[in-house]
């Protein structure tokens, strides 16, 4: 048997071994390796990391880092605010929020909180800072301009005005 043949059969045997090890070792190892690459899901979907939480009476508003579109993504830059827990929200919410943390209110968001969690939501946002765009009766229009109920939070995405 030639050396090439021996190498071929050795590789084939190793392949069968890899198959046997897949559910016990390899699959988990490769998944962990991939998770360890430090990749993250596009913030246009996830809304970006939370940077601050503003407490209100029975609930809190979490403020996310502003998200800017990548490449030619057909979206506006936006900032996401989460009202949670949704179960503690009053029937109508009308809150001013200092988004950038400078002590001045930046927006006022007003929306109804229906009892049915699947009921459609609408929001009005008045802008007190030209950096944030006002929204009127907005629903789920784009990733960068919406109000949605996700689990026990109501989140609003407010488009940022261009520089």
């Amino acid at each position: 048997m030639s050396l090439r043949s021996k190498l071929g059969y050795t590789a084939a045997t190793l392949t069968v071994l890899v198959a046997l090890l897949t559910p016990f070792v390899l699959m988990g190892l490769l998944s962990k390796g991939f998770a360890g690459l430090g990749l993250h899901v596009d913030e246009m979907y996830s809304g970006g990391p939370k940077i601050r939480t503003v407490p209100y009476a029975a609930y809190a508003v979490a403020i996310h880092r502003p998200v800017h579109p990548h490449m030619l993504q057909n979206e506006m830059p936006f900032v996401q605010l989460d009202w949670s827990p949704a179960s503690a929200l009053p029937a109508h919410v009308s809150d001013t929020v200092d988004i950038d943390g400078d002590g001045q209110p930046d927006i006022r968001a007003s929306f109804d909180v229906p009892v049915d969690p699947k009921a459609p939501l609408r929001v009005d946002v008045d802008s007190h800072n030209p950096r944030y765009e006002a929204m009127h009766n907005a629903g789920k229009e784009r990733y960068s301009r919406l109000i949605a109920r996700v689990d026990n939070s109501i989140l609003i995405r407010i488009p940022l005005a261009h520089p």
């Binding site: 699959m27 998944s31 991939f34 998770a35 990749l39 993250h40 899901v41």
Partner: peptide, 29 residues
């Protein structure tokens, strides 16, 4: 360094029992 997909690197529950890392690991193996 961004995954352009509305999923999760690790499982987030719901209808997706297989998160992105699990599927990529399985596919690679």
């Amino acid at each position: 360094r961004t995954i352009v997909f509305p999923g999760s690197i690790l499982s987030a529950g719901g209808a997706s029992s297989h998160a992105i890392a699990a599927m990529v690991g399985l596919w690679l193996a």
